[in-house]
Amino acid sequence: MSDYAARVENLGKNFGGILAAEEITFQVREKEIMGIIGPNGAGKTTIFNLMTGVYPPTAGKVFLGDEDVTKLAPDVIVKKGVSRTFQNIRLFKRLTVLENVVTALDLNYPLYNIGEALFLNLPFLKGKVKRAEKDLRDKAMSYLDTVGIAHLAGNQADSLPYGLQRKLEMARALALEPKLLLLDEPAAGMNPEESMDLARLIQKVQKDFDVTVLLIEHHMDLVMYLCHHIFVMNFGRELAQGSPEEIQENPAVLKAYLGEGRSNG
């Protein structure tokens, strides 16, 4: 019944004495785009990893809707409707662009079982498996089309330029049909023009697929343009949260980003 797609409560992570995150509390409202910003090493990606079960938190809880998912494994959390992209792109490099998306479709469309798979060349089953594979490919193509890389479907994933690999990761994440989409620096390495294109794509995706988006980003123009709500981190802790306007005027944020007295200008 909650209005929140997700919330974290007093989340903490301690890596052998190093506090990567401490007392992190925020809510992601349904169907909004929320941003997490902060200097490098502030613990932003750690939050994503805790939310997706890559490692368990040392303190606190993660909720999806009203459900506590703190201790669940990543593949279980994915089934509950969370998918993500990675800061250091993690594609299935030696598979084709299309196969990367098809792999993700398997979660919601397991179209045949292992017996059918093993004996799939026998005449009476061949049809079914072949048709299933074709359906999956068609479906995957529509996701590639959404992010605008359908023409590259047959290429090996790691042959794509960096920016397109990020888009492919997004297509793969969308193919999991998430309710909550986590994007970890989707615009990294892009120039201002490209990153604004990406911003429009994220908006479109949010609307077309009716998802909630939580993103980590360093491009301030993109964040300020896209996000309804921003969470700022520094040294593993909350620095501030609020609307883009509030964040832009927050003295603590300005200090963290620009340094005191702007001496390093």
């Binding site: 997706t52 890559v54 494994a73 990543p74 593949d75 994915v78 089934k79 998918s83 993500r84 990675f86 993690r90 594609l91 299935f92 490099k93 030696r94 598979l95 196969e99 098809v102 792999t103 993700a104 398997d106 979660l107 397991p110 179209l111 045949y112 292992i114 798979a117 093993l118 004996f119 799939l120 060349n121 498996v129 793969r172 999991l176």
Partner: peptide, 26 residues
């Protein structure tokens, strides 16, 4: 048949990147 089915594809996904594979619900 095993390798060129969805099972083979999932196995390859794990080989290529097991974190991403897990995050793809595998």
């Amino acid at each position: 048949n095993f390798v060129f089915s969805r099972y083979g594809r999932m196995a390859i996904a794990i080989r290529e990147d097991h974190v991403a594979a897990e995050m793809a619900g595998i």
